[in-house]
């Protein structure tokens, strides 16, 4: 009962947020709607018992990625005139009719393909009994340092590289 309510709320938040990201005219609003969508996904994780994943989603997206996005919007938006020396607008609009028509067609094609692929699976899937909820934190920790230790280490190196790389790329240069 309560899980169903949580599921509905999260799914609605998620889908409305995603639709808002598509149709919003304002980049800042799109970022906030993306945050709503990501919160919805965290709720969906919580519904299927992926508690650690839900919290990680909250920590990384709400605390990190969305604020980074907002920062990038601010740092690239502070110009007075609207077009640069190449004659292209500095802050492009969120899309025009042309781009939306192209996107609509591509989405139609892709969605037919994906639905075709999924149909097979949907038919063969039989709904079993869901196992009871149990904490996933210890199990995920154990799996991370036993079976998946290589991926874990590589991702830590990847993160370090990304950190250093981002700092090097974005640093202001003299002259």
């Amino acid at each position: 009962m309560f899980e169903n309510i949580l599921f509905f709320l999260s799914a609605a938040l998620c889908i409305i947020g995603a639709a808002g990201v598509v149709f919003s005219k304002n980049l800042m609003h799109a970022c906030v709607l993306l945050l709503a969508s990501l919160f919805g996904i965290a709720g969906l994780y919580a519904v299927i018992g992926a508690d650690f994943l839900a919290a990680a989603q909250l920590v990384i997206y709400a605390g990190g990625v969305v604020i980074l996005m907002l920062f990038a919007v601010m740092l690239t938006g502070g110009s007075s005139d609207n077009s640069n020396k190449f004659g292209i607008e500095k802050i492009p609009a969120m899309g025009s009719t042309k781009t939306y028509v192209i996107a609509g067609f591509s989405v139609l094609v892709i969605s037919f393909t994906v639905l075709k692929l999924m149909a097979n699976f949907m038919k063969s899937y039989t709904k079993g009994e869901l196992p009871a909820f149990s904490s996933t934190v210890e199990k995920i920790g154990t799996l991370l340092v036993t079976d998946h230790v290589l991926a874990f280490e590589i991702s830590s190196i990847l993160l370090l590289g990304a950190l250093v790389g981002a700092a090097v790329i974005a640093r202001p240069r003299k002259g």
């Binding site: 800042m28 965290a42 508690d51 650690f52 990680a56 909250l58 920590v59």
Partner: peptide, 26 residues
């Protein structure tokens, strides 16, 4: 007594950062 309590707390309280930023921007 959520089994990921403190992690949840860190995640949710980072909404305040977004709020501060949006308040400043808007």
């Amino acid at each position: 007594n959520l089994n990921i309590g403190v992690f949840y707390l860190i995640g949710v309280s980072s909404l305040v950062g977004v709020a501060v930023f949006l308040g400043g921007y808007s």
